[in-house]
Amino acid sequence: MAHPAHPSPSGGFAPAFVERVLADALRSGARIYGISGLQGTGKSTLAAQLVRAAAARGLRAATVSLDDFYLDRPARQALGRRVHPLLATRGPPGTHDLPLALRTLDALRAGVPTRLPGFDKLGDRRLALAQWPRIEGIELAVFEGWFLGTPAEDASALDTPLNALERDEDGDGRWRRWCNAALARDYPALWARIDRLLFLQPPGFEVVPGWRWEQERALQRAEPARTGMDRAAVMRFVQHYERVGRQALRTLPDIADVAIALDADRRPQSG
């Protein structure tokens, strides 16, 4: 059973590539197979394809996304008032419900009945509990997220702003230091739940804003009656992710069990 996939601009990966990734997951004996990759790399697309391929083999599989564990908007707004206004924006470390994520992954590993949370990105709200699908007996859970496995930066790396958002809205570094501390303190327990990690590696961070814009347009095409972000808003939004995204690019090729280089059209160049 698959959790509904997030809309993606990608047309999907080649079946032969999907089969190779599934073979890697099954050969490793992973119950929780992680897919890490920056925004727009095709993580949710690949996860959904893996679940369909597993189902074709008679296996019970499900996808779960780090995005589905975002704190709800009121909780992030409260965090923004208490710590820093930028924490009202979902995505960076410290804006996830980690106890819920840990409970969910542990239940998936044990194969016991559980509900998979969901998040409405256009509405920027967590879905109501009644909308969370109930599943059990899962043999393979594909867990995807934009910075799965990424370690925190050294404190000295946080001194200089790296984009306009950090320069203009986090001049004293309080937001980025808080997020980095959360990444160091709270996320290793989540990363430890991942049995095997695959990294979809883009050619560089410079492709991410365009890929995220394509993703936003796909979200809006899926629900044309609703309002999403315009391109300027997406470009600003991506800056919230840039620091940790660049850290992922530096570190995950050596941390992940499998690293798959993608070209500018998201075509796998290895693996």
Rank of each mutant, 00 (worst) to 15 (best):
W132T: 00
D254Y: 05
G210E: 13
K121L: 09
P113M: 15
L22T: 04
D97I: 02
I32Q: 10
G94K: 01
A2C: 06
T45C: 09
M1Y: 08
N180V: 11
L116C: 03
L100S: 10
R193M: 00
E166R: 06
G271F: 14
F17C: 09
R176Y: 04
A141E: 11
V258W: 14
A107V: 05
D230I: 11
V234F: 08
S65A: 15
R31D: 07
L140R: 00
H6T: 13
V21Q: 08
A181W: 11
L183D: 08
P151F: 05
L79E: 08
G91H: 03
P113C: 12
G245N: 01
H240P: 01
G245S: 02
A184L: 06
S8V: 06
L105A: 01
D159H: 12
W211H: 00
V142C: 03
D254T: 09
P99R: 05
V234I: 12
D230W: 04
W132S: 00
D257G: 15
A56S: 14
P268F: 11
N163F: 08
P93A: 06
R125K: 07
D124W: 14
H6C: 06
Y33K: 12
R126Q: 13
R217D: 04
Q220P: 00
Q269N: 04
A256V: 14
E139L: 05
P188R: 07
E206K: 06
E139A: 10
A259G: 00
R82L: 14
D186F: 03
T89D: 01
G149T: 14
R103C: 10
A16R: 15
H96P: 04
D154G: 13
I135Y: 00
D230G: 15
A184E: 07
T104N: 06
L262V: 13
D124E: 13
Y33M: 09
S44W: 05
F205Q: 05
A233V: 07
R196G: 03
W191S: 15
G111N: 07
L87H: 02
A218R: 10
H96V: 05
G271D: 10
F119L: 07
D68E: 09
I138G: 08
A141F: 08
G80M: 05
G91N: 04
